[in-house]
């Protein structure tokens, strides 16, 4: 957590990508992508399936390394070799399907990979702490759970996404990447999640939202990046554009 302590206590946690390239064999998944994101804002990455959104997310979240280009976090150039290192640097990703494990119970999901340890010699989990913290943290996101020992599969789709977001923030995320957080949800559930995403701005989180739902993205986003065939074809601030304009560019 050394990096986190050194760098993430600033008011503005910034990611800057400069001229990023990524190839898979002969396919140029990303070509010359440059962008920057700041705290307290929601940045939407828009694009069709296969446009390169996921590749971009995977580079930022530490799954892949870029072939060329610079990845800068708060003025330091970084190169993560796995998602763990990115998480430790305060950059967390909430994936669409892999956010939580339905068959395991709620508090075990919340502390997955970060189990609180009771006794250092035996590596025993501090369950009481885990259960209490899970309850407390979820209440901050308007989810009240009477029994965190329930299996996470009993949560609604929206609650699962929020659980994953709450977990990321609890473990120190200052930069949060949301990969299609609402695409699998119905309207009601989707609204619940959107409400919480907007709240993240007040918490001064740097949010990167990947989506292909233009209307929803426009409603909550501050800044929009449009990716097509691996290239950045447009970059807009909210006042300078409209949902229809974005759609026109995307569908051109």
């Amino acid at each position: 957590m050394a990096f986190l302590e050194r760098n993430m206590l600033t008011n503005n946690n910034q990611i800057v990508l400069k001229n990023i390239y990524k190839n898979f064999g002969n396919i140029n998944a990303l070509k010359n992508i440059s962008m920057s994101t700041n705290s307290g804002k929601i940045h939407c990455i828009l694009g069709d399936n296969g446009a390169g959104k996921s590749t971009l997310v995977n580079i930022v979240s530490g799954v892949f390394r870029a072939d060329q280009g610079k990845y800068v976090v708060n003025d330091d150039e970084v190169s993560f070799s796995n998602p763990r290192e990115a998480i430790e640097a305060g950059i967390s990703t909430v994936y669409q399907n892999l956010a939580i494990i339905p068959i395991m119970n709620i508090y075990r999901n919340f502390f997955l990979g970060n189990e609180p340890i009771h006794n250092n010699y035996l590596n025993m989990m501090d369950k009481e702490f885990a259960i209490d913290t899970t309850k407390k943290e979820l209440r901050k996101f308007d989810i009240s759970i009477d029994n965190p020992k329930r299996s996470a599969g009993t949560l609604s789709g929206g609650e699962r996404q929020i659980l994953a977001i709450a977990r990321a923030l609890y473990f120190g995320a200052k930069i949060l990447i949301l990969d299609e957080p609402t695409s699998a949800l119905g309207v009601k559930e989707s609204n619940k999640v959107v409400e919480q995403i907007i709240q993240l701005k007040n918490k001064n989180i740097n949010v990167i939202l990947v989506s292909h739902n233009i209307d929803q993205a426009f409603m909550i986003g501050d800044k929009f990046f449009i990716i097509k065939n691996g290239e950045l074809v447009g970059e807009f601030d909210k006042p300078d554009t409209s949902a229809n304009k974005l759609r026109t560019i995307l569908e051109k």
């Binding site: 892999l98 494990i101 339905p102 395991m104 990979g113 970060n114 989990m125």
Partner: peptide
């Protein structure tokens, strides 16, 4: 104790339930 009360126990369950999710959580 190993399965239900230890850190490794949590890892074992997670590995069995979803290797991908477990890996992404480090």
């Amino acid at each position: 104790l190993l399965l239900k009360h230890s850190q490794v126990g949590n890892w074992i369950f997670a590995t069995g339930a979803s290797k991908e999710s477990a890996e992404l959580m480090g």
